[in-house]
């Protein structure tokens, strides 16, 4: 059942990769990178989920469950969720860096078409 989440994460990655490969507008390209980051979030959270699990928080457990049953495998994996949290924070920082580079390119070349940026050709 959770395999559908993995397939959706793969589809999201393919959508982002399609944008990065085919579009020439640099801002659209950074948007493709954001979509690819979203696919990694979905993958990490889906890997953290276990069958019938709930959030790894022990205050006010749901009805029919006690704290001991939660600690014995009744919660999602907190380690992968923390990886996802780190990925979110790093993702927004990386996006800010990319966008500032795009703004500098626009100020220098007066264009954000990837074909007009000639500085990296030999």
């Amino acid at each position: 059942m959770i395999v559908v989440n993995y397939l959706a994460a793969g589809a999201l990655f393919c959508i982002g990769l399609y944008v990065v490969l085919t579009r020439r507008n640099l801002i659209k390209l950074v948007m493709g990178l954001s979509v690819m980051e979203a696919s990694t979030y979905v993958l990490l959270i889906s890997m953290a989920y276990r069958r019938g699990s709930t959030a790894p928080v022990f205050v006010s457990p749901p009805a029919g469950r006690s704290v001991t049953s939660l600690t014995h495998g009744g919660v999602a994996d907190p380690v992968l969720q923390n990886f996802c949290l780190t990925a979110i924070v790093i993702g927004v920082a990386a996006t800010a860096v990319f966008l500032s580079v795009v703004v500098r390119i626009a100020q220098h070349y007066r264009s954000i078409d990837a074909d007009d940026v000639r500085g990296m050709r030999g």
Binding site: N5, A48, A55, V75, C84
Partner: peptide, 20 residues
């Protein structure tokens, strides 16, 4: 994605995703 994170049981990630 915030809604999806809450459904999959990660409210802390949902907090940061809602803001970010």
């Amino acid at each position: 994605l915030t809604l999806l994170f809450v459904v999959l049981g990660a409210p802390d990630d949902a907090h940061s995703e809602a803001v970010v």
